[in-house]
Design a binder for these strands. Structure first.
Lengths: 104, 104
DNA sequence: AGTATAATTAGGTATTGACCTAAATAAGTA
DNA sequence: TACTTATTTAGGTCAATACCTAATTATACT
């Protein structure tokens, strides 16, 4: 599973959005979401595997935080595509240009 | 299927990357990728449904181009998360700060 | 030691999704 | 009207995934 696939699941995006607000225990997340603890635990495992979050232990609890560089890969991919797009005309633009001056 | 899910599949990202280089027919994509035509067609259908690409007809061919605003949702989501992160200290930073000056 | 709390692992089910082949549609050409 | 080319739709298989309950691990507390 890579970062893109991890973010494809809306529940995982929601969990990420929750953790980004501040360090969060698993139990806290289980309370806010309508899923059982094992489900949340699996989602956290995936988010951790792809580097979107990290955890530390505090007594029995595991506290999760987001990783600063976790979204870097996605962000740079998106921006590269945007860059390619901006230097390029789409079909409509080409059509308008090819018909420029035609007063039909 | 939403934009995030559409981009979760690496083949679809590859197809998008190919189309972003310029208007492309289905057949051209089938040639470059090692998948059968129906598979490519399904991927294009999904990319179109989520607004990442658009198509126009030219004789029997369908020519695909990327849509300029197709990645906007993903980009703005990522940037919002980055914004939340930048104003926030992670677990390591908090640890370093709380132990500041301890010369142990 | 025994009990409570916090989270993960194991294992099962049902759905989704990514591929395929074969058949259907649509448009162009002889 | 055939025949070719380009693409999509239909239908099936197999793997991945998102849930769940039950059991396990790990730590804290009495």
């Amino acid at each position: 599973m890579d970062t893109f696939a991890a973010l494809a699941d809306p529940t995982r995006r929601n969990i990420f959005e929750y953790i980004v607000r501040g360090e969060t225990s698993v139990g806290e997340i289980v309370e806010r979401f309508s899923f059982k603890a094992p489900t949340i635990s699996q989602h956290l495992k995936i988010l951790k595997e792809v580097g979107l979050v990290q955890s530390r232990a505090d007594k029995q609890k595991r506290l999760y935080t987001v990783r600063a560089d976790g979204l870097a890969e996605v962000e740079s991919w998106v921006q590269l595509q945007q860059k390619h797009m901006s230097g390029r005309l789409d079909a409509l633009e080409r059509h308008l240009i090819s018909n420029r001056g035609e007063d039909k």
